[in-house]
Computed example of a mutant assay.
Amino acid sequence: MDLQEKVKVARLSVASNLILTCGKLGVGLTMNSISVISEAIHSGLDLVASVIAFASVKESNKPADDQHRYGHGKFENLAAIIEAVLILVAAALIIKEAYPKLFGATEVKSLGLGALVMGFSALVNIYISSRLMRVARETGSPALEADAWHLRTDVLTSLGVLAGIGIIKLTGWYIVDPVIAIGVTLFILKAAYDLLRESVGSILDARLPDNEEKVIMEVLQSYAGNYVDYRNLRTRRAGPQRYMDFNLIVPRGKQIVSTHELCDSIERDLHRHLPGVEAVIHAEPCAPQDGDCEICSVRLCRKQQVEITGVCENCVECCPENEETTNQQSHP
């Protein structure tokens, strides 16, 4: 999936959040409802977050340049951190407005209008968040994923406010309004925590998730008969890009051309299973004195052996079944 699709869904998120923010704010003021106004604040922060996501998606897909030689992927992680901070600001504003009303609840008007707006908001955000999440997972975009989680949180809080309006309609208990608003705040704080944890981890070069590292090891295992061992696997993420490097131990007698082809094949498979991955493979000759022969299952074919001139004893030791071919080459 290309940049155009990512930009398209990010722009759609901006438009929907703008409409919902204006609608909720107008209705909340008409109703004198702190829970609906809190939802308007929530959607306003979603709007700011979607604008940031839109800008970061465009920036992160710029190619590497002289100042950013690893690309611009971490712009998306930075955007997600900013979004999380904005969520915390929203939570503080809601609590500031809701807490005093716990001790002096005021009448909430136009309940039917509020229910209509909350129901419409939930439906719109279900659709938009589903599209955002699909594109985010297909492209590995943390900014779009953060935006999708924002909207999914908004769905839950809108439904909560809708339920609160229903309770007020049935019972006349206006204190439900600030209670629901504080409940909205708890969902907002949880979203902020999750975003901060993941994005700060990427900024600090935390390794890839367990399931992604498992995919990497499965790909490497599929080539087990072509190398001695792999060591020092390191992984990290920057926006939609994944980076990894490791040492690949190969038989000392293996031709450099064959080793290069092996590395290329591994890289292609890694990219097929983890889009956006960039692998740096450092090939090293085996060290029989360090016990590499004990774990080696590689056997160089007769053609490869014949092409090697002056095969060293270490290669013969690592691949003992080729000793006869090597002797014939050394003593025609």
Rank of each mutant, 00 (worst) to 15 (best):
G239Y: 04
S222Y: 00
Q304M: 00
G239W: 03
V27A: 09
V176D: 12
C312Y: 04
V184T: 05
C22L: 09
R237Q: 12
Q305I: 03
A279I: 03
R197S: 14
T153A: 01
Y227A: 04
E324W: 11
E5M: 03
T171F: 01
L88C: 03
C263E: 14
S258V: 02
C286P: 11
G239H: 08
F120M: 13
I52H: 04
L116S: 03
G119P: 08
K190V: 05
Y223F: 13
V155F: 00
T259P: 02
R207K: 15
M133W: 05
A279D: 13
D194N: 06
I308Q: 15
L189H: 11
C312G: 07
A143D: 10
L86N: 14
G183K: 08
V179A: 02
V27S: 10
V89N: 06
G172W: 05
G253P: 04
E307M: 11
G114P: 06
N327Y: 13
A287D: 15
A163G: 04
L3C: 06
S158T: 06
I95D: 11
I281W: 00
D65I: 02
E39W: 13
L25Q: 13
C296A: 00
E267L: 03
V48L: 08
S50R: 12
S60E: 15
S13F: 08
I19H: 11
R272D: 15
N211D: 09
T21E: 11
V257H: 03
S141V: 12
S35P: 00
A224I: 14
I168Y: 07
